[in-house]
């Protein structure tokens, strides 16, 4: 009988070794360990054994059964894993197919620049304010020391609606509004980004464009403060290596007045097409607020001084992103717009 057990063990191990599926494993289990299995059958024959033989064979059969059960169990979990892997393998997809998603939006480069300028000045304690685009002659010109008939009005031919109303030619109009709105006549620190309009249209001038205006009024404000502020502004926008050149100039609402050139960031000042081989690019107008402007808008020029500056945001955006044709900013070709669709440091 011992022989028999050994033979069964041998056969079973052999068969188990060849089991490659859960189904055949179960069949093998039933064949040997099932109710009618070969090993079970042997146990049933134990009664016919002698008293001495019985414990020996009994323990042998149990040992073989335990052994087989263990093998079957481990084999089973192994086969189950294989089966799951096979199933998952059959569910495989092509991960390189296109994703499903909503369209991707983009922020217009001009507004990107406006936001950048706003963030910088807000960090320096400036308030961002706005004013009407349909402005009165009074605020656009007269309160800025540009009385009717002033030759400088020629510099900015305007879109008039009536003799009194016009589309503002400069964000400076909001300077007068900020001063008039300040009832306490207390210090002012503001910037005004916004649309402006002039009666000209060619390759380098759009009849509609964008400016940002800055105005600071306080006690003891000097030209040196203007210079320091614009240095921070331009270095932030165009790079730390940017140099500034202040050229005395003329604007009716400031005295002294300065035009500000920045060193050409394309050639580094050596001279190229962008800077017309001068090394400099004219970018801002600025100056100390004219005493007449302070007076006309309720500030005492004996007590307060101030500075103001303004620059074209369209050009700033063009420089920042290397846009060569200004008309692209207003054409709104989706292929152009979609390029401005990501975070930009």
């Amino acid at each position: 009988m011992e022989e028999q057990v050994k033979q069964i063990e041998k056969n079973a191990l052999e068969e188990l070794k060849n089991c490659a599926e859960l189904k055949s494993l179960e069949e093998t289990r039933v064949k040997y360990l099932g109710k009618k299995g070969e090993l079970t059958a042997l146990l049933k024959q134990m009664g016919s054994l002698s008293k001495e033989e019985r414990p020996v064979i009994g323990s042998l059969v149990n040992k073989v059964r335990d052994e087989l059960e263990e093998i079957i169990s481990s084999k089973e979990s192994e086969l189950k894993k294989l089966e799951i892997a096979k199933k998952l393998e059959s569910e495989k997809i092509d991960v390189t197919l296109p994703s499903t998603k909503a369209r991707r939006g983009s922020k217009h480069p001009l507004n990107r620049v406006i936001e950048e300028v706003e963030d910088l000045f807000v960090s320096m304690g400036y308030d961002v304010i706005s004013g009407p685009e349909l402005e009165t002659d009074e605020y656009c010109f007269e309160r800025l020391n540009l009385p009717k008939g002033h030759p400088a009005r020629d510099m900015q031919d305007s879109f008039y609606i009536t003799t009194e109303y016009l589309l503002r030619t400069q964000t400076s109009a909001v300077q007068a509004r900020a001063m008039m709105a300040n009832k306490e006549k207390s210090p002012i620190r503001v910037i005004v980004p916004g649309k402006t309009y002039r009666r000209e249209d060619d390759a380098t001038h759009s009849h509609q464009f964008n400016q940002v205006e800055g105005l600071v009024i306080d006690k003891d404000i000097t030209f040196a403060d203007l210079k320091g502020t614009l240095e921070v502004f331009m270095k932030h926008m165009l790079g730390e290596d940017t140099k500034l050149r202040f050229r005395p100039s003329y604007f009716p609402f400031t005295e002294p007045s300065y035009e500000v050139d920045v060193s050409c960031f394309k050639c580094g000042g050596k001279g190229c097409n962008l800077c017309k081989h001068t090394g400099w690019i004219e970018l801002l107008g600025s100056g100390m607020v004219h005493p007449n402007v302070l007076k006309m808008n309720g500030y005492d020029p004996e007590k307060y001084t101030g500075f103001a500056f303004g620059t074209g945001l369209d050009r700033l955006a063009m420089f920042k992103y290397g846009i060569t044709d200004m008309r692209l900013l207003y054409a709104n070709d989706v292929r152009f717009l979609s390029q401005f669709d990501r975070m930009d440091k």
């Binding site: 706003e118 000045f121 807000v122 960090s123 320096m124 304690g125 400036y126 308030d127 961002v128 210090p187 620190r189 306080d218 003891d220 404000i221 000097t222 030209f223 040196a224 403060d225 203007l226 210079k227 320091g228 502020t229 614009l230 240095e231 921070v232």
Partner: peptide, 15 residues
């Protein structure tokens, strides 16, 4: 003329 940044009262800018 040297540029400077005047020390002004600290104030939160708004927008």
């Amino acid at each position: 003329i040297q540029g400077r940044l005047k020390e002004m009262p600290i104030k939160k800018g708004s927008y």
